[in-house]
Amino acid sequence: MGDYILPWQSSVMLKHPWVLSAFFLIIAILLSFLTWFRRTRHEQEEDSSGNQDRNME
């Protein structure tokens, strides 16, 4: 199990190539929650203040 800790290392990549993908997938899903959270807050701000979208550049 200690092998899997740093999945970007080349030793891990050579032996178990799927670890990196799984690792990234998990992080991506976790971060998606962040996006959902920030998005709802962003939309709330937009509704309440009625400002133009200042983020999009």
């Binding site: 990234f24 997938l25 992080i27 991506a28 899903i29 971060l31 998606s32 996006t35 959902w36």
Partner: peptide
Amino acid sequence: TPIAWLHPL
């Protein structure tokens, strides 16, 4: 969204 997040990673 998860697919999108895979990109920066």
